[in-house]
Lab assay of single mutants.
Amino acid sequence: VGEWSCVRCTFLNPAGQRQCSICEAPR
């Protein structure tokens, strides 16, 4: 899977990211 949706702000982050780029919530 290439990306994941943040549970807090729904931003689509790259699969390699451990936390959201926008709101910094953990994956």
Rank of each mutant, 00 (worst) to 15 (best):
R18W: 06
T10L: 05
S21M: 04
C23E: 02
G2H: 08
C23A: 01
G16N: 11
I22H: 15
C6Q: 09
G2E: 15
S5W: 04
I22F: 10
S5A: 06
L12T: 12
P14T: 05
F11R: 12
C6A: 02
C6T: 00
C6S: 00
I22K: 15
W4I: 13
S21C: 04
E24T: 15
A25M: 03
G16K: 07
R27H: 13
E3H: 04
N13L: 04
G2F: 11
W4R: 09
V1H: 02
P14W: 02
A25H: 12
I22G: 15
P26E: 11
V1S: 10
P14L: 05
Q17E: 09
R27T: 09
L12A: 15
A15G: 08
C6P: 03
E24W: 06
G16V: 08
Q17D: 15
G2I: 14
W4A: 07
S5F: 04
P14V: 04
C20H: 00
E3L: 02
Q17A: 15
I22Q: 14
T10F: 03
V1D: 04
S21A: 06
S21D: 03
A25F: 01
Q19L: 03
W4E: 14
Q19S: 02
Q17W: 08
G16Y: 01
C23S: 01
C20N: 01
S5D: 03
P14C: 04
V7I: 13
R27K: 12
V1F: 13
A15Q: 02
R18E: 09
A25S: 06
V1G: 05
L12E: 12
R18G: 08
R27E: 14
E24H: 15
S5C: 01
G2R: 12
E3I: 05
C23Y: 00
G16H: 00
C6L: 01
S21P: 14
Q17M: 14
A25G: 11
Q19P: 03
Q19F: 07
C20A: 00
C6R: 01
A25P: 11
A25Q: 12
E3P: 04
G16F: 04
S21W: 05
P14N: 06
I22T: 13
